[in-house]
Design a protein around this nucleic acid. Structure first.
Lengths: 248, 248
DNA sequence: CGCGACTTTGAGCTATCTCAACAGCAGTGG
DNA sequence: CCACTGCTGTTGAGATAGCTCAAAGTCGCG
């Protein structure tokens, strides 16, 4: 089985803050068809695997920080990370949550323009950014795939702009739950229960609200029987009405 | 001189809502080195020019609408456009203003995910999206340039997310003025007077505020001597204090 | 059991919105 | 040349969604 998955399964063992391991094994990777790696062709895969190393961090540790030299990229295989920007006075805006299959750092220039923390224990494939780009530079089929991924990210960012610019607290929270649900069904099998691995503070900083407002709004959605708040997540009771809220 | 520029100079003549003209002339184009076109090499330029037609729309007319099949891309040579998304209930979020050198439609999938209107009279180079992609598909140097442009757009979108999620009205307006200033100096020579070609409503829908709040905030910035409101624009009186506001 | 971190709930506050009036200006037509 | 109309922008006054501050509840963990 894939090395990185084995590491991730030891959820209860204490991981070091940061671990680099052996080469990656794309041929058996669970998220390969979700990520850029799916564009790497059979003939190229041996060389590709030689470039990457498996990598893990335990929950709450930092992967990289805004301003740092962006020397590596990470393809998440297990776990969830938050990507955020800090203002000098301490305000924080989370620009996205990264799930398995997502690539961190590939859209950064010389230095990172965002910071990233592991929310859960996290495993990833780690590549030298320079070597990675040398590898894909002359391979149009991979460049095109990367372009497609970047376009999708841009499209998500624009949806987030609409959300933050126009939507009420209730609409934001509903959109957040549904958005998470949509992204989960990409990898895992779909369930009416959406696990929320991040804290209320994380959700607040993602939606441009406060923890109190998140809490109140979830309570409100529960009182109106759209969701049920369960330990570490929410259960969707009325999917259609949630969608109607978001369509607004 | 470049055809499209000649057309644009007839600012006072009535343009048809939409005009398609002759082939583009990249060799003398004023914005070529600002846009994707700079990556097109000498040997390729003849074929590239044959692909595009010059295009113009007069102020306030629509270029394309959210949901429409995205069959063409437009590289703006003169004028300014707004890109926006509408919610079913009429709320509008402007996701960006496009200036000369910007490319519209290249990051859209099958159908446009945003709408675009000309704010001023506008000229652009118009390409069939399919033919354009056929042309660049096997040219890694152009794909890389396109990827870089898309990354920059993503980065701008993330800045906008921080602005909408965390910043006060005063910070948003200051950031808007400075952001416009930065993008203007890319093409035009720099001036302390920033022309605001768009309406207060456009600014409001871009910053997630109301026209009244824009108006009040500009007045406030004028009272505190950071800017001077002039016809169709603002004059920056205290650049440093504006920057301090945005650093927040 | 008790501590600390996170979440929920309450109560009052404030930035921004809403609604409304008015001002400036361009175009129109008498 | 001057009403008149329509459109955009400004200003005021009151309303409100979400924020702040505070207290109490919950849960995991030593």
């Amino acid at each position: 089985m894939l090395d990185s998955v084995i590491i991730a399964e030891k959820q209860n063992t204490q991981l070091f803050p940061l671990q680099q391991e052996s080469h990656v094994r794309c041929d058996q990777c669970a998220i390969r068809n979700l990520s850029l790696c799916r564009a790497v062709q059979s003939l190229e895969i041996r060389k590709y695997m030689a470039l990457g190393t498996t990598f893990s961090v335990s929950a709450k540790h930092n992967l990289f920080t805004q301003g740092e030299a962006a020397s590596h990229i990470y393809i998440i295989t297990q776990g969830i990370a938050r990507l955020y920007k800090m203002l000098p006075d301490g305000r924080r805006q989370i620009v996205g949550f990264a799930l398995p299959g997502d690539i961190l750092g590939i859209n950064q220039g010389e230095s990172f323009s965002v910071s990233a923390d592991a929310i859960t224990n996290l495993t990833a494939c780690c590549f030298s950014k320079q070597r990675y780009f040398e590898f894909i530079m002359d391979k149009p089929h991979i460049l095109q795939e990367l372009l497609t991924l970047t376009k999708n990210e841009l499209s998500l960012a624009q949806e987030q702009i609409v959300l933050l610019g126009q939507r009420s607290a209730e609409e934001r929270v509903a959109a957040f739950i549904l958005g998470l649900r949509n992204r989960m069904k990409r990898s895992q099998h779909l369930s009416v229960t959406i696990p929320l691995m991040m804290s209320r503070q994380d959700i607040a900083d993602y939606l441009g609200l406060t923890t109190e407002t998140i809490s109140r709004t979830l309570s409100k959605l529960m009182k109106s029987r759209l969701i049920l708040i369960v330990p570490d997540g929410v259960r969707i009771l009325n999917l259609q009405r949630l969608y109607e809220l978001v369509a607004g």
